[in-house]
Design a protein around this nucleic acid. Structure first.
Length: 211
DNA sequence: CACCAGGAATGTA
DNA sequence: TACATTCATGGT
């Protein structure tokens, strides 16, 4: 017989379902991380947590100026404070994130994109990480790697998303893992100025093939 | 000191 | 449609 841990591949361990609070924190992180490194976001999240203001209801109730000061280290703090307030107000008006995000996928995505401050990457991050919906999150790393490999253009979000979703099994944990691997690869090799020495896909890439 | 980091909105041609 | 500019802090 073939020994298996379950029907899920062992390299994609199942996770306990997200709590309502965790879903909210994921959304906050998705907005704060826009065009900023995660380290700067983390310190902002810590400050929000210390102020007991990490939940959507708390954020909605928080004075704008106070919110701005708490998230200052994440950069673009005035814009992001406004984005958080708008997101919190909208989401709270639609019930729990779990229920809201489980509706028709295209409708929810369009609804998110209609919010000021929510673009494609943020919308898809909310859907995948907070809603556990099967949407591939394309980011700057994804575009850089795929662009260099010739998978799609360096700036075409929708093409990149279709390419990846078309080439991978439609699976939330797999999208999650694959994206994490892209991030790791971008940091190790596929940097702004590529480090091709030792790159595992060097021969598949323009940068690698021409020495 | 220059540059970059897991974007998005707005204005212009 | 395709760019350019603006927003802003912290690390290297």
């Amino acid at each position: 017989m073939t020994p298996r841990a379950g029907k899920r591949p062992v390299y994609l361990p199942g996770r306990r379902e997200l709590s309502a609070r965790q879903r909210e924190e994921v959304c906050v992180g998705a907005i704060l991380t826009q065009n900023t490194n995660w380290g700067n976001v983390e310190s902002a999240l810590v400050r929000l947590n210390e102020a007991r203001a990490l939940g959507l209801k708390e954020l909605r109730a928080l004075p704008l100026r106070r919110l701005e000061s708490l998230i200052r280290t994440s950069g673009y703090f005035r814009q992001k404070a406004k984005k958080l307030k708008l997101f919190a107000r909208h989401a709270l008006g639609r019930g729990s994130l779990k229920e809201w995000l489980s509706g028709d996928l295209r409708e929810r995505r369009e609804e998110l994109l209609g919010l000021w401050g929510v673009g494609p990457e943020t919308a898809d991050s909310v859907l995948l990480y907070a809603g556990e919906r099967p949407v591939f999150v394309v980011d700057a790393y994804t575009l850089r790697i795929g662009g260099r490999l010739g998978w799609f253009g360096q700036t075409d979000y929708d093409r990149a998303q279709r390419f990846l979703q078309g080439g991978l099994p439609r699976s939330v944990p797999l999208y999650n893992e694959f994206h994490a691997l892209l991030v790791a690869h971008a940091k190790r090799h596929c940097r702004t100025t590529p480090v091709c020495a030792g790159c595992p896909v060097r021969r598949l890439c323009r940068h690698g093939s021409k020495k």
